[in-house]
Design a binder for these strands. Structure first.
Length: 172
DNA sequence: GATGTCGACGTGG
DNA sequence: CCACGTCGACATC
């Protein structure tokens, strides 16, 4: 049978003043966002077909949302997010993250509490690290309870930067 | 107070 | 089995 083009994922660049992010789209929506990689090969996707209209539409929304998020504002309307790659537990965590408003933070234990698994604090950290759409799913707003910064898959400098943009004063 | 150890939890290697 | 983007409880100085 024909290659199921519906399952194909598209990787499209989002140029920003902070570098070129890469957005990934599945047939169901935005499924990934990557931070700019320092030594970026900016190869135009020469042989790659132009994405379907639906994807281009999502991409336009994502670009605008990311721009706003990078200035510390609420992202506004988002394209549909395809978080199906995550386990049920992870999706619960990510849902909570999306409820944290810009300029506010939670601790890993508070998030654990919010999903009704008070003791799964550490697992929450793991779920945050597995977040496929950083920035728009604000895993950076989760700090350690002891006022520490915690970690960040994309690099702690990004976490610091994003928090600073939202006017959050970092502990020590 | 400042350290050190330990148990609890989900996931991937 | 182990290591994580953790935390709080306890032990010991």
């Amino acid at each position: 049978m024909k290659t199921n083009s519906a399952a194909r994922t598209y990787r499209l660049p989002i140029p920003t003043s902070d570098g070129e992010f890469i957005a990934c789209y599945s047939g169901h929506g935005l499924c990934g966002l990557k931070f700019p990689s320092g030594a970026m090969g900016r190869k135009r996707a020469a042989g790659v077909a132009r994405p379907p209209a639906q994807v281009r539409e999502w991409h336009a929304a994502a670009r605008q949302a990311l721009k706003r998020a990078l200035t510390g504002q609420a992202p506004g309307s988002l394209p549909p997010l395809d978080l199906s790659s995550g386990t049920e537990f992870q999706q619960c965590v990510w849902r909570v993250l999306r409820g944290i408003t810009p300029g506010r933070t939670r601790s890993y234990s508070e998030v654990a509490q919010a999903i009704g698994r008070t003791e799964a604090v550490r697992a929450v950290g793991g779920a945050c690290g597995a977040n496929p759409i950083p920035v728009l799913v604000p895993c950076h707003r989760v700090l350690a309870a002891n006022q520490g910064l915690g970690g960040f898959s994309g690099g702690l400098k990004w976490k610091r930067l994003l928090l600073a943009r939202e006017g959050i004063e970092l502990p020590s």
